[in-house]
Amino acid sequence: MIALTVNGQPHQFEGPLQVQALLKELELTGKRIALERNGEIVPRGRFSDEWLADGDKIEIVVAVGGG
């Protein structure tokens, strides 16, 4: 199992998994998001190649209403 912090909350996932698989687990596949892994942006083109490690901190953001 891999322990990840996603948007500030602890999660456990069956490893190994890459970003693409994480998004599938979180039901975010195909959604317009941007993702950071340990403070670095992971570009969309790398989602299937970026393998996550135990202890990684992930931020996933979307556009919401604002002024």
């Binding site: 996603v6 948007n7 500030g8 909350q9 979180l26 039901e27 975010l28 959604k31 998001i33 941007a34 931020e59 996933i60 953001v61 979307v62 556009a63 919401v64 209403g65 604002g66 002024g67």
Partner: peptide
């Protein structure tokens, strides 16, 4: 139009 950037809600209403 302006938008804000915020964490997505995980596990709510996919």
């Amino acid at each position: 139009v302006t938008v804000a950037i915020r964490r997505t809600n995980i596990g709510q209403n996919p």
